[in-house]
């Protein structure tokens, strides 16, 4: 049902955890549908210096979270904004179609974290 890449990210997720005093946090999903993804960012000079995630959800939800962190770590915020849920699914070698909607939200969580960062910048700057 899942590609080898998905299983690899599920069994060896990259960048799991939280960042203390993060520069941005994004959370998407809800417990009703069974997927909650939370992304933590450390930003330096408009670049994602560090990224961590925590996810409640199925195999696809965990794998997409892990994949998105791998795709954007070290990237500029501009580059990160261009990553879509579709990019993430493709990087994983595809997802079963019933998973494309409910569990493929990792890029949304990333964008929410970037928005949070911008908001905090405005307040402090």
């Amino acid at each position: 049902m899942y590609s080898e890449k998905v299983m690899d990210h599920f069994t060896h997720p990259r960048n799991v955890g939280e960042i203390e005093n993060p520069d941005g946090v994004g959370e998407v999903g809800n417990t009703v549908c069974g997927d909650v993804m939370k992304i933590f960012l450390r930003i330096k000079d408009d670049r994602i210096e560090d990224i961590k995630f925590k996810t409640f959800g199925c195999g696809a939800a965990i794998a997409t979270s892990s994949m998105v962190t791998e795709l954007v770590i070290g990237k500029t915020l501009q580059e990160a904004k261009e990553i879509s849920n579709k990019t993430v699914a493709e990087a994983l070698g595809g997802l079963p179609c019933q998973k494309m909607h409910c569990s493929n939200l990792a890029a949304d969580a990333l964008h929410a974290a970037i928005d949070d960062y911008h908001k905090k910048q405005k307040v402090s700057g």
């Binding site: 899942y2 299983m7 069974g34 997927d35 409640f56 199925c58 195999g59 939800a61 965990i62």
Partner: peptide
Amino acid sequence: IEGESLLL
């Protein structure tokens, strides 16, 4: 935790 990831 969620059931499918448990099953996997």
